[in-house]
């Protein structure tokens, strides 16, 4: 089956049947066949072998019997994807990506109002974005607890670099972001004096030069 698979694909090229592969990025399904939708190299990712029994065994006891006979379940199939290549010998060209719901992004705070902070999304996952996308952190999405006491100016200031999660594609202009997790929040902040500050607690940053503290929604270090 691997011998019939091409290494390079152009849009519209037949890659295989959906009974053999799972669709990954750069592919699409038409009449239960997998076709390429991008120009590039074909990659096969073998499914991760489950270590030990599956978590939901109790729930799917009837299903596991039938799958153990011969037909593999969809998540046991190898995933096919097509990645854009820059040319012979070079590594994969960076392709423009879009923020998606659930992605962790890095962004810079542009301006704040009592209800929301407007941010510019700079990095999505591991990729630096070429275009600048605007995001919005509303006051109710800043933290998970005591939401009614959140004040935007005690959480973000313009110029801060924030790690946030995309919760919605939002309206026409903005992605909606949230920092309501411990590891999300401000990761780089500058004081009013213009110095880079150190985090000292979950809600405070301290300026090493002046010794003054400022309030932020601080991201827990990994």
């Amino acid at each position: 089956m691997a011998s019939t698979l091409p290494t390079l694909a152009i849009p519209g090229q037949l890659l295989g049947s959906t009974s053999k592969y799972q669709p990954g990025p750069g592919t699409h399904i038409h009449e239960s066949n997998l076709y390429a939708s991008l120009l590039g190299n074909v990659r096969i990712a073998q499914p991760a072998k489950p270590a030990g029994p599956a978590k939901r065994l109790t729930k799917l006891s009837a299903l596991t019997q039938s799958s153990s006979s011969h037909k593999p379940t969809p998540d046991q199939l190898p995933t096919l994807s097509v990645t854009v290549s820059a040319g012979p010998g070079s590594e994969d060209k960076k392709r423009e990506v879009l923020p998606e719901v659930g992605n962790v992004v890095l962004c810079r705070v542009m301006r704040i109002t009592p209800r929301q902070a407007v941010v510019a999304i700079l990095v999505c996952g591991d990729t630096v974005l070429e275009a600048e996308w605007q995001g919005l952190i509303r006051v109710q999405d800043v933290r998970a607890t005591e939401k009614d006491r959140v004040k935007i100016y005690e959480s973000f200031r313009p110029g801060d670099i924030v790690r946030a999660e995309v919760i919605s594609l939002g309206d026409q202009a903005n992605y909606y972001l949230a920092t309501s997790k411990n590891e999300l929040g401000v990761i780089l902040a500058t004081s009013e004096a213009g110095n880079t500050m150190h985090p000292i607690s979950w809600k405070e940053y301290r300026d090493p030069e002046t010794g003054l503290t400022e309030l932020r929604k601080v991201a827990k270090p990994y």
């Binding site: 152009i10 849009p11 519209g12 699409h28 076709y35 991008l38 120009l39 060209k93």
Partner: peptide, 11 residues
Amino acid sequence: LADAGIDCVDT
């Protein structure tokens, strides 16, 4: 479009 990496069903 293929060069730009925009998903197409066919050429």
